[in-house]
Simulated assay, not measured.
Amino acid sequence: MKKILIDIGLIALAGLDIWFNPLTGKPLGIAVAVLGCAALALRRRFPLLVVVLTLPAALVQGALVAPFAALYALAVRSRDRRLLIACVAVSAVIGAIPSPLDEDPGDLAGTLIYFGYTLATSAFPVVLGQLVQTRQELRQRLVEIEDAKEHERVLHAQAILASERAQLAREMHDVVSHQVSLIAVQAGALQVAAGDDRTREAARVIRSLSVGTLDELRTMVTLLRASGDDTTELAPQPTLADLRTLVANSGISVTLSGDLALSVGTPSQRAIYRTVQEALTNVRKHAPGASATVELWQDGNDVGVTVTNTAPSRPSLPLPGARQGLVGLQERAEILHGSFESGPVEGGGFQVRMKLPILADQVG
């Protein structure tokens, strides 16, 4: 509606311009003037055509408003500088030469002087239109830049969230699942060895609750890992000095060998500790009665740990697993540019081995 009102007002203004300053009252002149004014309604869709249709009105009736409005509309929508210059030149020539319907041809000097005037006035709407177009493009560019910045902020926030979810998933498995698994194993052992029904029932309930908790943890860890990526660690973080306590509290027979004072940084110590923790947890869960050896070693510019357990001496209790432990260890090794291997060994046992370059201590 607003555009329609603007069109009506502009056409009326162009008509008044010709009405008060007509060069001729002949029917041809009036028809040309009406065509030029009416064509302004199409200036948004066909700006070049409207410029052409308004030029006869400028030639025959000396119209100013109609050709100026047409030139402005063309300049706002076109970046073709040669076309705009040509339109300005043609409009200036049309405005300067005498009307063919006028019986007085005028003089050459007056025509040239008037040409300079019309050239300047014809250039004004084109320059103004180009400035408006540039302003619109700058405004659009600023909007695009803001949208791009907002998109980058969203992606950055999502990346941080994904990283935190991965960290949380790893720590839930390494710490919480480790402790709950130990509770379930100890409760199962108590259930088998208890001498009275009340104790066995209490052990059964504890084991049942532990198993349910492990199931819930498995689901939560899977969901968190679905959108996470391992990049950093949560504090507090264990070191090699904590391995003796880990082995002592493991509940199985473990032989620890190697130098606990290896000259490695915190990221590598963290990864080695988690490897031993995961391996011993798996021994308790899947190889009851088995013994294990934990060997810390250094080979040139590489350090690592190897955990090997013997075959189980009795059947294991059915406990759910998060199925993310070995995956997490593989990811830790890759982050530190190392390698991780796991698999069965001769005699029915199982072995995990993590190897890390000493330069990896600079990562994390």
Rank of each mutant, 00 (worst) to 15 (best):
V211A: 07
G212I: 00
G212A: 13
T213A: 14
E216W: 06
E216K: 09
R218L: 05
R218W: 02
T219F: 10
V221Q: 07
V221Y: 04
V221I: 15
V221K: 05
T222Y: 04
L224V: 02
R225D: 15
R225K: 15
A226Q: 13
A226W: 00
A226E: 15
S227W: 04
G228S: 03
D229E: 14
D229F: 08
D230Y: 13
D230M: 10
D230R: 14
T231N: 08
T231E: 13
T232H: 09
T232L: 06
L234P: 00
A235R: 09
P236G: 06
P236A: 04
P238V: 01
P238W: 03
P238K: 02
P238M: 02
P238G: 01
T239H: 03
T239N: 06
D242H: 09
D242V: 00
D242E: 14
L243Y: 04
L243W: 05
R244I: 09
T245H: 10
T245Q: 15
L246T: 07
V247N: 09
N249A: 08
G251R: 07
I252C: 01
S253V: 10
S253T: 13
S253E: 14
V254D: 07
T255F: 00
T255K: 13
L256Q: 07
G258Q: 11
G258V: 01
G258D: 08
D259T: 03
A261P: 00
L262K: 04
G265Q: 09
P267G: 10
Q269E: 15
A271M: 12
A271N: 07
A271D: 14
I272V: 15
Y273R: 03
Y273C: 07
Y273D: 08
Y273H: 15
R274F: 14
T275A: 12
T275E: 03
V276E: 09
V276D: 10
A279P: 07
A279L: 08
L280F: 02
N282S: 12
N282R: 14
V283H: 01
V283A: 08
R284H: 02
R284P: 05
A287E: 03
P288F: 13
A290F: 10
A290W: 04
S291V: 02
S291P: 00
A292D: 06
A292Y: 03
A292I: 04
V294L: 11
L296A: 12
Q298N: 11
D299W: 01
G300V: 08
N301L: 14
D302E: 14
V303R: 05
V303M: 06
V303N: 05
V303Q: 06
G304C: 08
V305I: 11
T306V: 15
T306Y: 00
T308I: 05
N309W: 00
